[in-house]
Write a protein that binds this DNA or RNA. Sequence first.
DNA 1: TTGAAAGCGCTAACAT
DNA 2: ATGTTAGCGCTTTCAA
Lengths: 337, 337
Amino acid sequence: MQTTSPITMATIARIAGVTPSTVSRAFSQPHRLSQGTVQRIMEAVRLTGYVPNLVAGGLASKRSGTLAAIVPSITNIIYAAFVQNFIIHVRERGYQVMLMESGFSRKTEEELVTIALGRRPEGFLLTGINHSSLCRSRLLAAGAPVVEAWDLTESPIDVCVGFSHADAGRGAARHLVSLGYQSIAIATMDDARALRRRDAFLAELASASISNSGQVVIEGTPTLGLGRRAFGQLSESGFGSAGRSAIFCSSDVIAHGVLIEAQSRGIHVPEQIGVMGFGDQEFAADLNPALTTVRIDRSVLGAKAAEALIARIDGNEMVERRIDIGFSVVQRASLIS
Amino acid sequence: MQTTSPITMATIARIAGVTPSTVSRAFSQPHRLSQGTVQRIMEAVRLTGYVPNLVAGGLASKRSGTLAAIVPSITNIIYAAFVQNFIIHVRERGYQVMLMESGFSRKTEEELVTIALGRRPEGFLLTGINHSSLCRSRLLAAGAPVVEAWDLTESPIDVCVGFSHADAGRGAARHLVSLGYQSIAIATMDDARALRRRDAFLAELASASISNSGQVVIEGTPTLGLGRRAFGQLSESGFGSAGRSAIFCSSDVIAHGVLIEAQSRGIHVPEQIGVMGFGDQEFAADLNPALTTVRIDRSVLGAKAAEALIARIDGNEMVERRIDIGFSVVQRASLIS
DNA sequence: TTGAAAGCGCTAACAT
DNA sequence: ATGTTAGCGCTTTCAA
């Protein structure tokens, strides 16, 4: 479909009685043209409903006006909210985003990068710091600015913006310990970042001489059902029957499932068992009891990622290569304080 | 950023000892070339890491390989899941999707269509049948295939795929009536489709001589908090104190909020009040009690929309212009059966 | 302030 | 089976 119409810049030029280059200037630098000319051109544009072909423009100028964004999942609200903010910010700067979904697979991500490369985006937004080596090398070869979000590393492809998952895991553990919990379990997703949080979480517990009272690793996308099942398993293996117990979940959704399963088993939260989530998603504060969680500011993350990527595209070498947005623990009713 | 490199088809041609058109054919119709040639070309590609410039290709062939999709919100799981399926299907056919968010605003949608048009997508996926007249005329002028999803109309721009919201609202009302509910309230979002469901819902109640026992119209995006508040209002205005009561919510998320608020007020569902949602989102079956709802098959919707759009792009005029995917009522524990 | 000319990197007849 | 020749619709020097 050549869509729009056979109306091109030449058409407008003819109607306005100028040459195509003048029409081009009327769009890109109208102030450098005489007022009358610009007016005649705009009139012709209105008359014909002409919409400049950005694809052709991109080819000629070598600026596609396009950014590629690859996230693990767009149905996972945590990434959706993040990329939504990113998109809003870059749109203000005139960029269009091609959004792709890797499904947490490095292989898929690599393929998507290749596909995206074919459209010559001016920059890339990736999720995480874990990429296949072919993916890295392709990106490096392309020389396109790259922002890796949701994590930090000493050696980003270009620049990374996120927070330390180890610190977050440790922070969660410390919070539970400081509240006096002694029997602590964890229900974690199996993606790299969640596992990194888990490792630090368990290490911190160990250093506080609290033994890990149960662990469930969940595969796939976090859902209420998986959260319910995780708590079911833990509960049936005896967790919660001794001492002050709490469970840390690697996602608010899982924590929510745990809350529901506990409720349906007649186990009271936080009286009998404390529950802690991760993410501070929209719904966390509205649950009953309200969910204690680790807050990640997704809108700041999206904004910073956009800002950094655009700065890099604009050739700003001064951009910090490692932007830490931090996190915070939000204490709510699902844990006894 | 000209990204990738200065490697072009000419580079590959030189290395492989052929002309650029041969290289082009090696990608588009390798079977029409001698094996040796293809091999030499692919070897050169591998060697250099060459990635064809689809932007240039699109310009020359007048096929951008791109589709524009505009949804109300990507953080609303219902649209995210739908568009996710759509994307998966069209990718199989080699299409890239530029995803945009209208925020339920017709004005925004119109602007996005204009922006998208500049990139000459081969087709459009829109949400709903309600568009500004300028939006419609631009699309018509462009002559691009358009699929309007999530609703049905006798006069689509091109083709529509969805279900009857009036039927769905009526169906929900009938279900409640058939279960013997006599005091019925509704909590609805304020978007056009939800309001259409409400109107049919209330009309059906009236024709069954059941008076509407309360109505809350909610603005914005459905959240648990809004659902809780809606039930709070209803409850405080006396709803639920007389007769067999139920509340129909225009979204599962709202219904979930209602469940939580009822629980926190010590009101038992379904014993004291029945709750019915809309959408049958992933979590509906995992709530406690499991949520009765109207099921819309979002994966079928996404698939059908993709299928229809591609058929239109392929010039198939035989495509049905009105594809009804229907809906069904799923009875679960949140209503007494 | 505007025009002329030369591509951007590729595809698509048309030849051979 | 491959090469030649024109563009696709725009931007961008370089002139005037």
